[in-house]
Amino acid sequence: MSTEAIAAEKPKRNYNALFGLTLLALLILLWVILSVATQSFASGNNISNLLRQGSMIAILAVGQTFVIITGGIDLSVGAVVGFATVIAAMLINAGVPVFLAILITLLVGVAIGLFHGFGIVKMGLPPFIITLATLTSLRGIGLLMTNGNSISINNDAFQEFSRNSFVGVPNLFWMVILVGIPAYIFLHHSRWGRYLYSVGSNAEASRLSGVNVQRTIYMAYTLSGLCAAFVGVLLASRIGIGNPTQAEGWELQAIASSVIGGTSLFGAVGSVHGPLLGAFILATINNGANLLNVNAFWQRIITGVLIIVIVYFDGLRRRGK
């Protein structure tokens, strides 16, 4: 990361980068501890598995972060993932070329995001409400479309994609990079990124300064919907079925990853690398707990405690500044 090019935000940036480093240190520390404590953690197989587990939440968290920076929230992303698996499965089974099926699924995600923007900007609904409404109705629509059944996808190539690796790294993790780099440039080096921050900080001041606030909000939710639909495609590939009840609670994991990564729920504070690290920290904890034979119920409790601890220390540091 070039600090020259982004100098206008330097201290905040350095500070974010520093926070990024402490998160990275925490992640590495977890890995070292788990490598020592268990025999299987450091195995290539398990690491690949871990990267696969974390990748999908990581991509969701990036989209979620765009929304949270504007001061909003997107509760629908888990439902969008499930719905997207259904769309992708139906299209592929209907003989639509995989490439086109993916494209249409992504467009469905965009449409859902636009709908959220419409509800917030034109109908004046709070983001929490409109995305909560979509969360429940999308699951219902998906269940209607499938009659409550799972749709098995009859396309081996499509399914193999998520299981394969490229130069030793799982394809799913490459997808994180594919999303992460443009997202980083968008958020930190484009004026649209700046507008996300300014709208989250003070929408009225931004509007009077000539920022198109409505378009900025549309954009944030559209990107979140797009990321969610993309994750839906990846999930369909990974599990080989379309099922609207998949990805239950993923929206909360995405929000948690984002917040662990330093995003402020009050808006105007956040980055791309933070949520990515947050997602892999959560994945590591779950993975490690499995290997250590920790009761699955405990894993949930540990995750909750960890969210409180990390965000508390983040808050302390902020106030200290």
Binding site: E9, S190, R191, S209, A268
Partner: peptide, 28 residues
């Protein structure tokens, strides 16, 4: 209420109306 993004840097506030001019192809 209307003039400033208080929790953002001074530089960003000053440049807010002119980001279009100091960007090319979307990139600042």
């Amino acid at each position: 209420d209307q003039g400033l993004c208080l929790n953002l840097p001074v530089g960003l506030n000053l440049n807010l109306p002119i980001y279009k001019r100091i960007s090319s192809n979307m990139l600042i």
